[in-house]
Amino acid sequence: MNVIYAYPWDVVGDPAAAGRLKALGGDAVALAASYHTTRAATPLHPEHRLVDARHAACYVPLREEAWKGSRLVPGAPAWVASGDPFGEARDALRAEGLPVHAWTVLTHNTLLGSANPDLVVRNAFGEPYSYALCPASADVREYCRTLVHEVVELGDPDALILEACGALGFRHGGHHEKTDGTDWNAAVIALLSLCFCTACVSRYESAGIDVAELRSRVRAAVDQPAEAVESVESALGDLAEAVRDLRTGLAGELRALLLAEARSVRPGIPIGLHANADPWATGPFATVPAGVDVDVLIGNCWNAPEVDEAGLRALGRLGPRVGAYLLALPPRPADGEALAWLAETYTAAGAQEIHWYHGGLASAARLEAMARAIRR
């Protein structure tokens, strides 16, 4: 299966967009139903060349009765000239014979995080990540539950894809990120992704974890030369197992809540999950364990191919089908043969679906390269 990703604004206002996506040869479109802040090019749209989505928003209608009494309520997208951007785009795509998967971003929300700093991820130095709602909070879990309910009920998608189904971490944050010069390695980044918000501290204490000692070990490791920090486990020592189990359990708690909610609205709806088999993974591709009850686990394939292959193989050991989230934008070349080689490489590593990013952001040359790769 080949799934093409797109935004509602790629389709709304462009009568040719659905046909253009159909011509790529994909089997379905993953259409954003809830998405974070972005500035997106629209190179082929007849009315604009740029969409400035100034804050995270929900692209299905916001029903007052559904959100009444909720502390967290998603923003509405004033930058799309439609009362129901998702529904309008969905209907256009279905008219071309394309099933629509509701691509739903959950905890990545700077608008709500900035307005509710007590509900965001906070690192061991006390610094908040305003883009990262922490699912340890009941308010955040309830927001995600209501969001999924509304997307499935009002959006009426053919399938559901969940992104950021867990806590976000250090990466995936600033609008003008200036952090690479630190040379922090993956272990340090994972340590900076551990949360010490009030809700997480309460969970640590309930699990018998010495929070002051945990905070001290994280801070000490971050301030060492990165090459001295071999792994999260070496930095945390005898606290590592308990912290790992608590963090993976938190992601699992959110995931179970949302899967149950989606299936209560639409029994049997196919569900995909942007996922990572690494127990310390945070971000859009949150950690998942073996036996997770979804139809497909979609792994990030924006890295060096050998890194992506290892990630896909690890997902393949967890049980469900595996999908590869393949980048068709820079730095990948606008070359159908090169993209086909990547798709074949990821298929050989266990991917049974290729998820192509992105059908609206790509130039005409890149769309043709995607189409050639899919045909091959």
Rank of each mutant, 00 (worst) to 15 (best):
Leu62Ser: 15
Gly26Phe: 07
Pro74Tyr: 09
Trp302Ser: 02
Glu253Arg: 11
Leu98Tyr: 07
Arg217Glu: 11
Tyr346Val: 10
Ala290Pro: 00
Arg20Trp: 03
Asp14Asn: 08
Ser264Ala: 13
Leu257Ala: 14
Leu111Gly: 06
Arg20Leu: 05
Leu236Glu: 07
Gly75Phe: 08
Leu160Gln: 03
Gly249Pro: 02
Ile354Cys: 11
Asp14Gln: 06
Ser130Phe: 02
His175Glu: 04
Ala159Leu: 04
Pro267Val: 06
Asp295His: 12
Pro85Ser: 15
Gly291Phe: 01
Glu177Pro: 07
Leu246His: 04
Arg215His: 03
Leu259Met: 11
Ala338Met: 04
Ala364Asn: 00
Gly272Gln: 13
Ala256Gly: 15
Trp67Ala: 14
Gly87Thr: 15
Thr110Ile: 13
Ala92Arg: 12
Asp156Trp: 13
Ala242Ser: 14
Ser130Gln: 00
Val243Ser: 10
Asp180Gln: 00
Ala207Phe: 02
Arg171Trp: 10
Arg71Glu: 06
Ala362Glu: 12
Val100Asp: 13
Ala286Thr: 11
Val232Gly: 10
Arg313Gln: 01
Asn276Cys: 10
Arg266Gln: 05
Val218Phe: 03
Ala351Glu: 07
Glu344Val: 06
Asp335Trp: 04
Gln224Met: 14
Ser264Leu: 06
Gly26Arg: 06
Ala228Ser: 10
Val292Gly: 04
Asp139Ile: 00
Val322Trp: 04
Glu306Lys: 15
Ala138Met: 00
Arg71Tyr: 02
Thr146Gly: 08
Arg266Gly: 04
Phe285Glu: 06
Pro267Gln: 03
